[in-house]
């Protein structure tokens, strides 16, 4: 079983495919859930406090916007833990919405430069492409076993 980070990091479609193939998916909702159920509700709705953007300094400099650094406090450890990655280029908000494109750019860069196996593809636009999309992901994930 490999730890597979998916991009966009909120994609339930990709997370589901990874889990079905017996791997662990690394996605934001799981991490946010941990923050909400393991600590007191400091700062609803996500329970992110001003300390998180400071933790994000490990991945982004102080002159990077605080919203990017706050996201990196959650995403950075996922990238560090990742053993493989699936990246969907030009995903659109329907694939999995991530609000800040500056954070998205940094995340894609860090994943691609980590030196782990990466499957990069476009989001399918019709049924045929969708079948090919799932097939390619399946083959990639099987290769990780």
């Amino acid at each position: 079983m490999a730890k597979v980070i998916v991009y966009p990091l909120t994609s339930t479609i990709l997370a589901d495919l990874v889990e079905r193939m017996g791997h662990e998916s690394l996605v934001i909702p799981t991490e946010v859930r941990k923050k909400i159920i393991s600590t007191s509700i400091d700062s609803p709705p996500l329970n992110i406090t001003p300390d998180d953007p400071k933790k994000g300094l490990k991945w982004a400099a102080v002159d990077v916007p605080s919203g990017v650094r706050g996201r990196m406090a959650i995403i950075g450890p996922l990238i560090e833990a990742a053993e493989a990655a699936i990246i969907i280029d030009d995903p659109g908000c329907l694939t999995g919405c991530s609000g800040c494109n500056r954070a998205n750019e940094l995340v894609r860069l860090l994943i691609k430069t980590k030196g782990i196996p990466v499957l990069e593809m476009n989001y399918p636009e019709d049924e045929n492409e969708a079948r090919g999309f799932v097939r390619k992901i399946k083959i990639f994930l099987e290769g990780l076993k």
């Binding site: 700062s43 709705p45 996500l46 001003p50 998180d52 990017v68 650094r69 706050g70 609000g99």
Partner: peptide, 10 residues
């Protein structure tokens, strides 16, 4: 844009 992830929404 960004207040929740900056920890300042509250």
């Amino acid at each position: 844009c960004g207040p929740e992830y900056s920890g300042i929404q509250k």
